[in-house]
Amino acid sequence: MIKPLKDASNTSAEWERNKINHRVYAFLARGLSSTIEKSCLSEAICASSTDNYPEESMQNTLEPRDRVERRASYWSSKGQSDPEVPETLLYRLASKLCVVTEIHVQPFQAYFQFGFPIYSAKAVRFRMGHPKSPMEMDSEAFDKSQTGSESADGNFVWTYTSPEFPMVQENCLQKLKLPEPVLCIGGILQVELLGRVQRQEMDGLFYICVSHVKVLGRPLLSPFDVEIDDASGKCALKYRPIAEGPESSLSSAKDEDGGPHSRLRTLSAMLMLRGVRSWEQIILSRIRGAGASVDSNESEDELPA
């Protein structure tokens, strides 16, 4: 929520408030990475099941190659007699605030089995959101403890669910573009693998295997962070300046009144998410090429405290 001026009913006061709003959102837009990342994934958290841990752990899906040091690199579910049993993979994104545009999934082809079967899912769906409470476990321990458990899904609040995307039974990186860019607040991605198509010859059970998962989008740069109130679900934007080089677009040699750090600290004090629509619109507008910007004159002005 933007901090209003005292006399908002006055026309000139309303104009001044709009100018402040413009500058605040412009500095927020500057905090987004200016280029499309190769991948916005930070780490693998847990899988709904894993056949052989850690050899077939979902940690392997962060590796773009399906062979590492002459060994196969992939995640495998446990086998099921029912081909409709789904699986889920849970990831942490590179930032608690990311704009995601595409997600790529590559099924695994078992080149060491007769006939070189491909263990793809019938379809895939994506969810994004945030934890209900802070996550303190490291990814390796969490992955191992949650294997074979359905309880992990209840630990998160999902704010976005994609449509289902059909998958083809091919050993290739299948690029799935979301209908429109999605603002993920909280930095958690769930990949839902729906349905099984390949039965393993040796035991007659259906499996899903994934070689690689990749996410394209724009994360919020590191000086910014998002904090979520577990009880209310409200979010606050925080700015935590770090030591940066003199050429950084979000830093300056001095942190004095009117400088970039001063204005960005003001942004942290002035913005509070009671709903995400204002942030969502300004950030998605930037991704589409029509975002807020600060001209050379405005950039020298100090945001009111």
Rank of each mutant, 00 (worst) to 15 (best):
M137P: 00
M137E: 14
D138E: 11
S139D: 01
S139T: 00
E140W: 07
F142R: 07
F142S: 03
F142E: 07
D143W: 00
D143I: 00
K144C: 07
K144H: 10
S145I: 01
Q146L: 08
G148C: 05
S149R: 13
S149L: 13
E150W: 06
A152V: 00
D153N: 10
D153V: 12
G154E: 13
N155E: 12
N155A: 15
N155K: 11
N155I: 02
W158G: 02
Y160N: 06
Y160F: 11
T161D: 09
T161P: 03
T161Y: 01
E164Y: 08
M167Q: 11
V168W: 09
Q169D: 13
Q169N: 15
N171T: 12
N171A: 14
C172F: 06
C172V: 15
L173W: 02
Q174S: 06
Q174P: 05
Q174I: 09
K175P: 02
K175M: 14
L176C: 05
K177V: 14
L178E: 09
P179G: 08
P179R: 01
P179E: 05
V182N: 05
V182Q: 10
C184N: 12
I185Q: 03
G186S: 12
G186T: 00
L189W: 01
Q190F: 02
Q190D: 09
L193V: 05
L193I: 06
L193Q: 04
L194P: 11
L194S: 13
G195L: 10
R196C: 08
R196D: 04
Q198S: 14
R199M: 14
Q200L: 13
M202G: 07
M202T: 11
G204L: 14
L205V: 02
F206P: 04
Y207N: 07
Y207W: 05
S211Y: 06
S211M: 01
S211G: 15
H212V: 10
H212S: 08
V213L: 08
V215R: 00
V215Q: 04
V215S: 01
V215L: 02
L216F: 11
P219W: 11
L220W: 10
L221K: 14
L221F: 07
F224E: 09
F224C: 04
F224N: 01
